[in-house]
């Protein structure tokens, strides 16, 4: 771990009881969903993490408790530091509070989070899907969403395939 990161990690650990994981010099801190807004506010205001570089999630299906990890990758331009906050979320009703009031960049990223993983973002100012069409069913990046493909339609099986082809909704 970078020497400059040690006091920051210590503060977050003491204040939120966060667990620390390290891998290849990267610092991952685990906090609870209800703590994330406060943790990010402290990191932004007191430790100069001005930028939310990435916000994404990863799905550990079939594990349910926790099923998702929501990942917040923070960058400090002034101090040239990075820290990753991770929020474990369960699979039955995945929910995280919005961090758009801390970082504006989270607006689109959280829409993507909902779109791709179905993790609901509470209090989001613009809760629409972002990449998939509005009438999509399911959330593509979940592990239980099949990586589908379209069967090629030739003249000999044109009608057969046509029958089960998913057409856009009326």
């Amino acid at each position: 771990m970078d020497k400059k990161l040690e006091p920051i990690v210590k503060t977050i650990q003491e204040k939120f009881g966060a667990t620390l994981e390290e891998f290849r010099d990267e610092v991952h801190l685990f906090v609870k969903p209800e703590q994330i807004v406060e943790a990010l506010t402290i990191l932004r205001d007191e430790y100069k993490f001005e930028m939310l570089s990435a916000l994404t999630a990863t799905d550990y299906f079939p594990q349910q408790m926790p099923r998702f990890h929501v990942v917040y990758q923070l960058t400090s331009v002034e101090k040239n530091l990075s820290v990753q906050m991770r929020v474990p979320v369960n699979g039955t009703s995945p929910k995280v509070p919005t961090v758009t009031r801390v970082y504006e960049a989270a607006n689109w990223r959280e829409r993507e989070l909902f779109d791709m993983f179905g993790v609901e973002v509470e209090g989001h100012p613009d809760p629409r899907r972002i990449l998939m069409p509005d009438d999509t069913e399911g959330h593509p990046l979940r592990k239980d969403f099949p990586l589908g493909y379209e069967e090629p339609q030739f003249s000999f099986n044109f009608d057969e395939i046509g029958l089960k082809k998913p057409f856009p909704k009326e």
């Binding site: 791709m116 972002i130 998939m132 069409p133 593509p140 990046l141 969403f145 990586l147």
Partner: peptide, 11 residues
């Protein structure tokens, strides 16, 4: 946006 979404991450 999303007109060019091809699911690269999923793939």
């Amino acid at each position: 946006i999303g007109y060019l979404h091809t699911g690269i991450e999923k793939n």
